[in-house]
């Protein structure tokens, strides 16, 4: 069990309205197993990014617990937490924003070696190797983020994440801002890298087609809840929840979902097992 979420909640105060909260994540149970890529799918505002940031411990959960390798990070002091953080890394959606524009690629990557005792030569070698594995030239080291295209930056961001030797890599809409071809290349790259670096992916996206290639399991989110969770093939063949069906038909027919249904969930709505690891909310 790599990550285990139990009843996790995160509410934000609504801007401009007092006593009103936005329930970004509202009671999520989720398990990510080592080596089993999970796709977290939902429309914008469904709370999937917040969930990712909760796992990254960029936010503190309001309720529930998140266990990473059986350990609850919320119970650690920030001093104890910092060295552990490298185990969960993230690649963000916006490649133009995820690399410090003032840093050369060498400086960006070299930051991953902080706290490790590595000689300069060894660092250099690791950076070059890593750039090669993400399909970039080692000349890239001396250049700055603005000299690269969006796809290349995303490769650099992946390189940075993998240099940390993470157990879990959260890809938060990592290919959503790239065009279809480049996105497909990045997905292929991620597949190749997985075997080499023994990393598990949590792929957060609104695009079901992207997840299909990479993930063994898919969880569909809406209104801060997980409404359906199944193995990828099962979900594509037999979506049970109407929202999932709508998402699927939209994804397969290249059109936007017909209705933006808002689903209300009470305290009692729970995931029901339909066999073979297929869960649907009641």
């Amino acid at each position: 069990m790599l990550v285990e979420l139990r009843g996790v909640k995160k509410h934000f105060a609504a801007v401009g309205a007092q006593n009103k909260v936005i329930k970004a994540v509202d009671g999520v149970d989720l398990v990510i197993k080592q080596g089993e890529n999970l796709g977290l799918v939902g429309e914008s505002g469904s709370g999937k990014t917040t969930l990712g940031r909760l796992i990254l411990k960029l936010y503190d959960a309001d309720a529930g617990s998140i266990l990473f390798e059986g350990q609850d990070w919320a119970k650690l002091s920030s001093r104890e937490l910092r060295p552990l953080r490298r185990k969960v890394q993230v690649v963000f959606q916006d490649p133009y924003n995820s690399l410090d524009p003032r840093f050369s690629i060498r400086a960006v990557l070299a930051e991953t070696f902080l706290g490790q005792k590595l000689t300069k030569a060894a660092q250099e070698q690791r950076m070059k190797d890593m750039l090669k594995s993400v399909g970039l030239d080692e000349q890239a080291l001396n250049r700055f983020p603005h000299e690269f295209s969006g796809g290349e930056r995303q490769r650099i961001a992946i390189a940075r994440s993998l240099l940390m030797n993470p157990k879990l890599l959260i890809l938060d809409e990592a290919v959503s801002s790239l065009d279809v071809l480049i996105a497909a290349q990045i997905i292929e790259l991620l597949k190749d890298l997985q075997a080499q670096y023994q990393v598990t992916y949590l792929f957060i996206t609104h695009n079901l087609r992207v997840v299909k290639k990479l993930c063994q399991k898919i969880a569909v989110m809406n209104s801060g809840r997980i409404i359906e969770m199944a193995k990828t093939d099962d979900l594509f063949q037999q979506p049970l929840h109407p929202y999932t069906q709508e998402l699927l038909s939209a994804a397969l027919s290249y059109r936007s979902p017909k209705v933006e249904t808002v689903y209300q969930f009470g305290e009692k709505s729970v995931l029901i097992d339909h066999g073979n690891g297929h869960f649907v909310v009641k």
Binding site: R82, D94, P101, G115, A157
Partner: peptide
């Protein structure tokens, strides 16, 4: 996001 990334890097 580059600040968030730095944070996750510990």
């Amino acid at each position: 996001e580059f600040v968030l990334a730095a944070k996750t890097m510990g």
